[in-house]
Write a protein that binds this DNA or RNA. Structure first.
Length: 305
DNA sequence: TTGCCAGGTCTGCCCTATAA
DNA sequence: TTATAGGGCAGACCTGGCAA
């Protein structure tokens, strides 16, 4: 397993120029994707936005890369474009920006004192909606997640920063022993997906949930579930949309700067939320050997069942 | 009303354990 | 060696409570 660094502080590494400059820990270095400083730099981490699994498929490793949810700062043009592309996909391509309502980190109340937060709540506020799906939706964004052996990435970046003959090519070399952890990303999202989706369904008709992920996470989810039984409700009253963002163009055709992300038409699922939850829960098979064989009693004796 | 603080949520970083 | 699974930790950010 290996990865390459795809973006460093909003700059793709697979172009030779301009040569990327290493950034040391400091505050107020702007993030390319939101109207706020890069918080990785401010806390002393390396400003890696995304990596490529085995040098190929993009895996986002910064929470702000796909679409930052931070409140009380103006949405950047980049965020607006991402959110509008989602709105067009779920509410219809004719929807206008002024009819897309957004709430960031919206509280979602569960029993007891606990409160979950929806990354976004998105509302179609147009007077004559041109779609059959929900007009209000919880929107969760998870472009990627963690990698294993992050220390290897840190050491790789530090060696690049120390190098006298520093180049983008050196920064984007394969880092071995590092893998993407789709399992962890899904593990952490699963609880929120179940609870926030449930809240959306209970809130009333016209509410749905949209889950935006990256290519690797989309493929991981579908490989773990039997979605063949799910009805395609794209043109009907879907309550769950699973969408995937991918790179816009082949790497060679890209200019310097950030990697463009677009929704992947080949990776999109519109279906019934409850049916999808059943499919998720239905991955287990009977396992009689788990409940038989050698056991130990609390007194220290071995018992075979 | 304002400012401070504690606590909660979310998520990336780093690590270990285990099995194939 | 690689893939998978999971735990501890830290930082950013937000909310609610409380005192001034």
């Amino acid at each position: 397993m290996s990865v390459t660094i795809a973006e460093y502080l909003g700059k793709r590494t697979d172009v030779n120029t301009p040569v990327i400059t290493p950034i040391r820990k400091q505050r107020n270095i702007p993030c390319h994707f939101m109207n706020a400083p890069c918080d990785k730099i401010s806390r002393g981490d390396k400003p890696i936005c995304s990596v490529r699994k085995n040098g190929k498929t993009l895996w986002i490793v910064c929470r702000h890369r796909l679409c930052a949810t931070t409140k009380n700062i103006p949405l950047s043009d980049y965020q607006k474009n991402i959110l509008l592309s989602v709105a067009k996909k779920v509410f219809g391509s004719s929807i206008q920006p002024e009819n897309v309502l957004i709430k960031r980190e919206a509280p979602m109340h569960v029993s007891g004192r606990s409160t979950y937060k929806a990354d976004f709540v998105m509302v179609d506020n147009s007077s004559n909606p041109s779609h059959m799906g929900p007009r209000k939706a919880v929107l969760e964004m998870q472009g990627g997640g963690e990698t294993s052996a992050t220390g290897n990435i840190t050491r790789h970046v530090e060696a690049w920063a120390r190098s006298r003959n520093r180049s983008n090519q050196q920064l984007s070399r394969l880092i071995s022993g590092v893998g993407t952890i789709e399992t962890n990303a899904w593990r952490r999202q699963q609880e929120q997906f179940l609870i926030k989706g449930r809240i959306a369904m209970q809130t009333g008709s016209g509410c749905g949930i949209i889950f935006c992920v990256g290519t690797l996470l989309y493929d991981y989810l579908l490989s773990r579930t039997n979605t063949a039984s799910l009805r395609d409700l794209r043109q009907h009253n879907w309550t769950l949309a699973l969408l995937s963002f991918k790179e816009k163009a082949p790497i060679s055709a890209q200019a310097a700067g950030p990697i463009d992300l677009v929704l992947d038409d080949t990776r999109a699922l519109f279906t019934d939320y409850q049916a999808f939850v059943r499919v998720i829960a239905d991955v287990g098979n009977p396992s009689p050997d788990t409940f038989s064989g050698a056991f130990e009693t609390l007194a220290g004796r071995t018992v075979n069942l």
